[in-house]
Structures are given as C-alpha cells and as structure tokens.
Amino acid sequence: MSVRRISPVWWPALGLALMLVANGLFDPGFLRVTILDGHLYGSPVDILNQGSRVMLLALGMTLVIATGGVDLSVGSVVAISASVCAHLVARGTPLPLVIAAAVGTGLAAGAINGLLVARLGLQPIVATLILMVAGRGVAQLITDGQVLIIASPAFAFLANGYVLGIPCAVWIVGGLFVLAHVALRRTAAGLFFEAVGENEAAAHIAGLAAARIKALAYVVSGGCAGLCGALAASHVQAADAYRAGENMELDAIFAVVVGGTALTGGRFFLWGSLVGALLLQTLTLGLYNFGVSPAVAPVPKALLIVAVALLQAEVVRRWARGLWSRKGAAA
C-alpha cells in the first residue's frame, strides 16, 4: 500500500522516447540538432515547433476534460481567431492588440460554451458541437470565404521566428505551460478542477462553486484556442477559414487522453498532455519519414488512440486483473 504509484505521465513519456529511438534507428540523422545562423535545426526542433499549436489546445482541453467535459469547438475557434488576426493585421493594427483580440475572441467563444454547459446544463459534447458547426461559418464570414494572405513580418515572427535560437512559438507555448502549472499547482485551482471532475456533488457540498469552475475550464480552453488561431495564422502567414484548425480538436483530445488524463474527469496531467501532443507530432513526422503519405497518417493515430482508450477502460482493466490473478492462483 505504501508504494507510491508510478505517475501516469511516464507512460506517454516512455512511448515518446521509444518513438524517438525508433525514428533514430531508422534515420540516424533524425535526432541530430544542428545550429545554423544561430538557430537550432533538426527534427526534434521541428517536432516542438510543429507540435506547439496542438500543445496549446491540449493545455485548455486538459482542464475541460478534468472537469468531465470535452470541448469540440476548439478547431472552429482557431479558424475564427485566425480570421480575426488576418483582418486586423491587414488594417495595420499593432501586434499586441492583434494577439489580445485573438485571445479575446477565444475567451468569448469559451464563455458561450461555459454558459451552455455549466448554466444551462447541456451535455458538453452537444453544447460545444453548436459552436463547432457555426464557428467555421463565422470564420468564413470574417474572411469573406477568401484565403487572406497576411503580409506582416512582425506577425509572421510569432510562429516562424527564433528567440535565442529556439522557435518563438515554443517559447510562447512552453511559457504558458509553466504559467499554467504554477497557476494550477502552486495554488489550489488545480485541486478545484479535479474535485469537480471527480465528483461534482461532493465538490458542491465541500463548498466549491462547481458550476463556475466548470465554466472557467471552457473559458480557458477558448482562450488557448484563440491564441492558437494567431499562431496558426502566423505559421502559414494566411488565414484560411476552411482549413485553419481542421481536425485540431481531435488532436488536442487525443493528446490529453494519451497524456494520462481520463475522459471521465478528475485527476489531470498537464505535462502528460504536453508529452501526448509531442508523441502525436513525432508519430506524424516519423510516418512521413517512413514514406507514409500525410493523408494516410491518421490511420495509425486512430489505432493509437483506441489502444490508449482500451488501456484506460475499466472493463478491460478488470478483465486484465482477472487474468493476472487467475494466473497467480494457478501458479
């Protein structure tokens, strides 16, 4: 009993390490990081840089899933926010204001989700589905259905620039993770989210404002999606309302689940989600290096997520335990 459990974060970390090693064996150059023009180059840096956007979404999604919900609308919010950025940049708005507008857009979208879930009591899937459907239309409305090209070096720097040799996006997302970790784990906020996800009735009785805490998770998730929209627009230096953030809600959910946070809510693992996002990105890049077309890459992703979901399923665990104990009894 006194043996502490192995932190679930180690499982995706182990998976990530194995995947990196496998890639390294297949292509010895895979793990090499070189310095060019004072910038770091190489596949690991690519993984960090490319994975930064899903990491960001996974950050907010972790909190939503911790409260026992799910936010399907983040992909659409990314599209809206990207469109807003393109629009503002075209008008010559200063960069800080553009970023503030992007985050604000996301926060507002999250507030709508939070209202529907926490106040009106809709199922999270249903509530966030609405914005998932309508959001892309709103994004297209903003861009007028065009792909808006963003010609601003300052804005492009956000996702493509380097600071101290490390991609700017990695700084931003990494910083946010550290910030979130401090805000959640150095205060009691993390415990509050977990308590509400574990047992809402008990949390309510213990004196927590359960509904407000739940709503807050969606607002944070929206804010992350808003910032992610800015990064996505900056990355391709364009806003495409059709494609921006496409399927990213799936990647974010997968990253969180792979990272060890159960979809039923409760205990969450912020760093696990980060590792989960990296694992997905490594998988994608590795498959690409193996010559698998990016269009087919979702197949192993799907298999991975089903496998992880099965590993977490209570039924399967009980069955496995039964198998184990039967074997133990026979011996």
Partner: peptide, 12 residues
C-alpha cells in the same frame, strides 16, 4: 455519491 473524491488522495 456526495462525500469522497474517489481517485484523489487522502490528503486532498
């Protein structure tokens, strides 16, 4: 149903 937070620690 209204008391424990089942998967959280005794301390929490």
């Amino acid at each position: 149903r209204e008391g424990i937070l089942p998967n959280l620690s005794v301390r929490e």
